[in-house]
């Protein structure tokens, strides 16, 4: 096979993997949007916050040590213990639940019945707040997140795909990051668990009922407050998973919060209300931007990944405003 085609295939596969990671972030958006009509811009920052908390707990960092040191003139950094990854993940989940409760209690309870765009701007405010809060709590230096996920290229795949080159000595098999493969598997499991949860458990059904019709759900005795806290907790959980994946990939740092910006076009493409849409949209964007960078990128100077997804989504929206799988938008006066 010719080089170009082989490299193209490799780019395609890596695009799929990247798409899965985008879809993972987009999932969190869809969950909250479906249940409460809030478009949560802070999802990316939640992933950052979750990853920061996880690293902080694992390393036994003292929260707010920077602030305490500045105010009291002390010099404390660490408790001096290390927490095993599993326990740390459970503790972080606890923190995310508390956060979900706080968000519901202090912000969105007061914004019920507001226009969606007001809610959107409130989540931008929330994103800023949490960014500062996370940095003050855990410090803003780049941290390494190691929960024992495999890293680096997969030799097994490289060896087993080498025959595809048919004697082409430039080809050593496809290069796929093990972490990406793990992420794909975890994302698949996550989606299955979420679907099972929303189909077969009492809380899951209540969640779907709220998503369908707030008032009807209220009238059959479903507590909106509880459901919303639960939805934010689930979104916090998805954020934690995304935070672990991205954190393990590129370190826990400020740029982690920018994955929200990657997920937005995914949502526009897939539709805000559809879980399959988030996944298909993620894959299309992931493959599309990698292929575009591979084919057109060299002609226009590269680094097209920043905007390609947005322009694609924009053009797409002009023809189908509700996205691929979204509910049809009906407007009445």
């Amino acid at each position: 096979m010719p080089d170009q085609l082989l490299f193209g295939t490799e780019v395609f596969l890596n695009g799929l993997m990247a798409g899965v990671l985008y879809a993972l972030v987009a999932l969190g958006f869809v969950l909250i949007y479906k249940a409460s009509g809030i478009f949560n811009y802070a999802q990316g920052v939640m992933a950052l916050f979750a990853a920061l908390t996880l690293v902080g707990i694992m390393d036994g960092q003292v929260p707010f040590s920077h602030l305490i040191n500045a105010v009291l003139g002390t010099d404390i950094h660490h408790f001096g213990w290390n927490v095993p990854a599993v326990l740390a993940i459970i503790l972080t989940m606890g923190v995310m639940v508390v956060l979900a409760w706080a968000v519901q209690q202090f912000i969105f309870r007061h914004l019920v019945n507001q226009e969606p765009i007001i809610l959107f701007m409130a989540t931008i405010g929330l994103a800023y707040f949490m960014e500062g809060f996370g940095d003050i709590m855990w410090g803003s230096d780049i941290k390494k997140l190691d929960v024992g996920l495999p890293q680096g290229g997969s030799f097994w795949i490289e060896e087993n795909t080498q025959w595809l080159g048919f004697g082409n000595e430039n080809f050593y098999g496809f290069f796929l990051d093990q972490l990406d493969i793990v992420a794909t598997v975890i994302a698949a499991i996550l989606v299955i668990v979420l679907v099972l949860f929303s189909q077969y458990t009492k809380q899951g059904r209540a969640m779907r009922a709220v998503a369908d019709d707030h008032q009807a759900a209220l009238s059959v005795g479903i507590s909106l407050n509880f459901i919303w806290v639960m939805v934010w907790s689930v979104a916090g959980f998805v954020a934690l998973v995304a935070g672990i994946m991205w954190g393990a990939k590129s370190g826990v740092q400020f740029s982690l919060s920018l994955i929200a910006l990657k997920a937005l076009p995914v949502l526009m493409l897939g539709g805000f209300t559809s879980i399959p849409g988030a996944i298909v949209g993620g894959l299309i964007i992931g493959v599309g931007e990698k292929m575009f960078e591979f084919i057109v990128g060299p002609m226009v100077g590269g680094a097209t990944e920043n905007w390609f997804a947005y322009v694609l989504a924009l053009i797409f929206l002009v023809f189908r405003p509700q996205g691929l799988f979204g509910d049809k938008i009906i407007e009445r006066v």
């Binding site: 007001i118 409130a122 405010g125």
Partner: peptide, 26 residues
């Protein structure tokens, strides 16, 4: 005034701005 490090002040600014946005919207 208080002799805090600059990055701490910057983070606090983020928190205050974010908090203010939410407060004003509510």
């Amino acid at each position: 005034g208080l002799g805090w490090p600059t990055d701490l002040a910057a983070h606090l600014e983020f928190m205050i701005v974010g908090g203010l946005i939410i407060t004003f919207l509510i």
